[in-house]
């Protein structure tokens, strides 16, 4: 379960002060799929980063499965990401010189769990996302939709409890978008993973169980 209480994030640069989040309080249940929407600059990505243990709040509290993100140091946050969090990005960000399979294995490799079991898990996932015949291909040999499916497999390979996706279809055509969102929702439901989607797309938002709209760093609806 994810929970935040009166979350604030302020960016200070010289005299300039930007209050990206202004008291966000929310609760997301395990296995729930939530879409965060809102205009550009409303604080969507900042909230995603804090929930993904990539950033810390200026004030307030954030918890993943009861663990206090707001009071953890960098090492603890990294450990948390290795175990509990998966990411999907708009630009896929697969390492081009690694094969598709190696890319998927990356989170397990970084946490020292790229053993036979891990490899089998990676292959299963690649089969599920329809890339079983592309395991030894390099990213530049794949289409955009295939790349995002591989990125999805990478995000899930270590069985995270939370999957965070930042504009996962922002760089895809509508057919590929639909395929990726279908996969994302079906896989996360199957694995009982909580999903938070940041998106501008109405279609993507519709696939979520719940929608949170942010405006000027506050929950609008």
């Amino acid at each position: 379960m994810l929970e935040t209480r009166d979350l604030h994030k302020i960016y200070q640069s010289g005299d300039a002060r930007v209050e990206a989040l202004r008291g966000i309080t929310l609760k997301i249940l395990s296995g729930e799929i939530v879409a965060i929407t809102g205009p550009s600059g409303c604080g969507k990505s900042t909230l995603l980063h804090i929930l993904g243990a990539l950033d810390t709040p200026s004030s307030g509290q954030a918890y993943i499965d009861g663990l206090p993100l707001h009071s953890m140091n960098d090492d603890a946050l990294t450990g948390l990401r290795q175990l509990k969090i998966g990411f999907v990005f708009q630009f896929f960000h697969l390492l081009p010189t690694l094969t598709v399979e190696e890319n998927v294995l990356l989170p397990l490799l970084l946490s020292g769990r790229a053993d036979a079991l891990g490899k089998s898990r990676a292959r299963d996932l690649l089969e599920t996302v329809g890339l079983a015949d592309r395991t030894h291909h390099r990213p530049h040999q794949l289409s955009g939709g295939q790349l995002q499916r591989a990125a999805l497999a990478r995000a899930l390979v270590h069985r995270p409890s939370v999957l965070l996706a930042d504009e996962p279809t922002g760089n895809l055509d509508s057919a590929s978008s639909a395929a990726v969102i279908n996969l994302l929702t079906s896989l996360s439901r199957k694995e009982k993973t909580t999903v938070i989607l940041v998106t501008h797309s109405e279609e993507v938002a519709k696939a979520a169980d719940r929608r949170i709209r942010l405006v000027d760093g506050r929950i609008h609806s």
């Binding site: 990539l54 990294t78 290795q82 990411f87 960000h93 989170p107």
Partner: peptide, 16 residues
């Protein structure tokens, strides 16, 4: 820079 960010997000520690 962004790629390093992705690595860190994927679980890479500072030392790594």
């Amino acid at each position: 820079t962004r790629e390093i960010g992705v690595l860190r997000a994927t679980g890479a520690r500072r030392g790594q």
